[in-house]
Computed example of a mutant assay.
Amino acid sequence: MEIIKVISLLLDYPERQLMDARVELDDAIGQCLFISPQQRQALRDLLQHIAGQELLDAQSLYLSLFNRGRHLSLLMFEHVHGESRDRGQAMVDLLAEYEQAGFAIAAKELPDYIPLYLEYLASRDQLTARTGLADIQHLLALLGARLEESESPYAACFHALLQLAGVDPAEQIGQAREKVAEDPVDDSLEALDAEWEEEAVTFMQGDGQASCGLSSPAGNFRAREEVAVPVHWVDFTDASNAAGKF
């Protein structure tokens, strides 16, 4: 699904390629009928927000949002497994899923980096992509709620992804707000230093073993070159079906 690829680009660390492809990305968002008009407009507004700045300013703002601790980390398993041993195995399992599908990633990439996971889903058929999003809908809602709390336009990505997963974004994010209200957030420099001082993650080392330490999301920002079925799916290609939903 092309729209998932577009959202992957929007959520990734801003690079010149994104700025240069601004018109094409705007057109792709506008032509997507799998999300509501409101969601399309919110994504276009985010694109304008990113591409309307100087590149260094966009990168600095991105880092200040997503690279200040684990609160808004774009590494999925940090939210799911934290520092437990289960995180290392989850990484290995996800890598195996990528390899089985013929989806190659660079050795430096962490497989649970959300823009990378979205790029993988964008390469799959529609049902697999939607199911993959539904599998992480609670995480998408949590991040969406935290971004809404920060009044960040990046929340649009998570609204759209939840809609593509076949669930009601407002309902899911509304439920997540209860957890967000209880979040202890310490983004002082001392807390950040302590949070990221662990050894970086390395997977599939020379001895074939996986290490399950933690790594800062900053190591995963990169330029792009290029199972139940959800029951609330709305296909906006059907105008009569879409009417009244939004």
Score class of each variant (00 low, 15 high):
1 M>W: 04
2 E>M: 11
4 I>W: 03
5 K>I: 01
6 V>P: 01
6 V>C: 02
8 S>Y: 01
10 L>I: 05
11 L>I: 06
14 P>D: 09
17 Q>L: 07
19 M>K: 09
21 A>N: 15
21 A>I: 01
28 A>I: 01
36 S>R: 09
37 P>T: 05
38 Q>W: 03
48 Q>P: 02
49 H>K: 05
52 G>H: 00
52 G>S: 02
53 Q>D: 14
55 L>S: 08
55 L>A: 06
57 D>T: 11
58 A>R: 09
60 S>H: 14
60 S>D: 14
62 Y>L: 02
63 L>W: 02
67 N>F: 11
68 R>L: 14
68 R>Q: 15
72 L>G: 01
75 L>T: 04
76 M>D: 12
78 E>S: 12
79 H>L: 06
85 R>S: 13
86 D>A: 12
87 R>T: 07
88 G>V: 09
89 Q>F: 10
90 A>Q: 00
90 A>N: 00
94 L>C: 06
97 E>Q: 12
97 E>R: 12
102 G>A: 12
102 G>N: 12
105 I>D: 03
105 I>Y: 03
106 A>S: 15
113 Y>F: 15
114 I>C: 12
114 I>E: 08
117 Y>E: 04
118 L>M: 01
123 S>D: 13
123 S>W: 04
124 R>N: 08
128 T>W: 14
134 A>S: 10
134 A>I: 05
136 I>N: 00
144 G>S: 08
144 G>N: 12
145 A>S: 02
145 A>V: 00
147 L>E: 00
149 E>K: 13
149 E>S: 09
149 E>I: 04
151 E>V: 03
151 E>M: 02
151 E>L: 05
154 Y>M: 06
154 Y>P: 11
156 A>Y: 11
160 A>R: 05
160 A>G: 10
161 L>N: 02
164 L>M: 06
166 G>L: 12
171 E>P: 00
175 Q>H: 07
177 R>G: 04
179 K>N: 08
186 D>N: 07
188 S>Y: 01
189 L>N: 10
192 L>K: 03
195 E>P: 02
196 W>F: 14
198 E>A: 11
198 E>N: 07
203 F>P: 01
205 Q>Y: 08
210 A>G: 14
212 C>W: 10
214 L>C: 10
218 A>V: 14
218 A>F: 10
222 R>G: 04
222 R>N: 03
223 A>N: 11
224 R>T: 10
226 E>A: 13
230 P>K: 03
231 V>S: 12
233 W>H: 12
235 D>M: 05
237 T>M: 07
239 A>T: 12
243 A>I: 07
244 G>E: 11
